[in-house]
């Protein structure tokens, strides 16, 4: 147990260190890249006086380390600064949208994970049959589709032709839970189709890998049925890589929402980020990037810890 705690603490420390480095990159990016940000925003026709005044207003005339620690300190209090474009607090802009994004990602995860694992197990079980090949071609194809293509195909069929689901996911906080789910079902389905292939292929590969090991041969010689071998002998040992790939795909999901949110005009963090990039609203972009990066790092860290926990051998490196 002490060993596990130590491992978790180590990983956490490493994650925090990475996050610190990432925050530095996000902040310094503005600093190191060529061009004067104030000048860019105001345009070529701005007089030097206006540019200087604008720089003072944004605090750009202070040295970078002062601003960095101000910024970082503010984040710990939930204060991300003020948006350039709308003069509102960034935290106010982000708050509700972050929840929306997490909700969408959660719905997509709930749909995709069970289907992916089930299909992966089935494909491993009926290896090299027509079923397996069909799934293989299907997953290769779905990996190759751009997100927005999948999204528009779903809109075309499920929304325009048959009118089952709404093509625009306009949600507000006063909607009931199921109404909310109903409105995000199309974006969630899009995300599902995008990430399911990778999870399924990894599940299949890790189970097939295990089926070659001696204890599986033993179980076969005992005369146990194929499905029992897969579910009782292979699956528990394949859990580590499967959990790993699931969590990594969840991390991907958090980023994959960006394009999907734009297609479905869903008021999430991704859409805010894209809008802010177009408007070059730096504080909002920095804050959203930091949140996305933090989620991503945290999920990858979870994957690391979980795969170690499910395989005790990894805890005792030789």
């Amino acid at each position: 147990m002490a060993k596990i705690l130590k491992m978790v603490a180590q990983r956490l420390a490493l994650g925090l260190l990475t996050l610190f480095a990432v925050s530095l990159i996000i902040f310094l990016g503005v600093e190191l890249l060529p061009g004067d940000f104030a000048q860019e925003i105001l345009g070529q026709s701005a007089t030097p006086e206006t540019v200087a005044a604008f720089r003072r207003e944004l605090g750009l005339d202070l040295p970078w380390y002062t601003r960095y620690f101000d910024w970082l300190g503010g984040i710990f209090h939930g204060d991300f600064g003020k948006s350039f474009a709308s003069d509102r607090e960034v935290s106010e802009l982000i708050g509700g949208r972050l929840l929306n994004t997490l909700f969408l990602a959660a719905v997509a995860a709930v749909i995709s994970v069970p289907i992916a694992v089930a299909l992966g197990v089935l494909a491993a079980l009926y290896r090299n049959t027509l079923f397996d090949r069909t799934i293989n071609v299907f997953t290769l194809t779905s990996i190759s589709f751009p997100d927005f293509f999948v999204a528009y195909i779903l809109i075309l069929f499920l929304s325009v032709s048959w009118n089952i689901f709404p093509s625009i996911s306009n949600v507000s906080s006063d909607l009931g839970f199921w109404e909310h789910v109903y409105r995000v079902i199309l974006p969630a389905l899009t995300l599902t189709l995008v990430i399911i292939a990778h999870m399924m292929r990894m599940t299949r590969a890790s189970i097939i890998n295990l089926l070659a090991s001696p204890y599986i041969e033993m179980a076969m010689l005992k005369g146990i049925s194929r499905s029992r071998i897969v579910t009782h002998h292979a699956l528990p040992n394949a859990l580590a890589p499967i959990i790993n790939v699931i969590v990594i795909n969840l991390a991907f999901l958090v980023v994959g929402v960006v394009v999907v949110e734009v297609v479905f005009v869903y008021p999430g963090l991704g859409q805010l980020l894209v809008d802010s990039v177009a408007k070059r609203d730096m504080p909002v972009v920095q804050a959203s990037c930091l949140i996305f990066a933090a989620t991503y790092i945290l999920l990858n860290l979870t994957a690391d810890v979980l795969s170690k926990l499910t395989n005790p051998r990894l805890l005792h490196p030789k």
Partner: peptide, 21 residues
């Protein structure tokens, strides 16, 4: 590379494109 890979590529690209246009 570890640090660069810790940030999702889309997010990173959006950040840089904001600055550079």
């Amino acid at each position: 590379v570890d640090v660069l890979m810790a940030i999702p590529i889309l997010i990173f690209a959006l950040l840089i494109l904001t600055i550079t246009g």
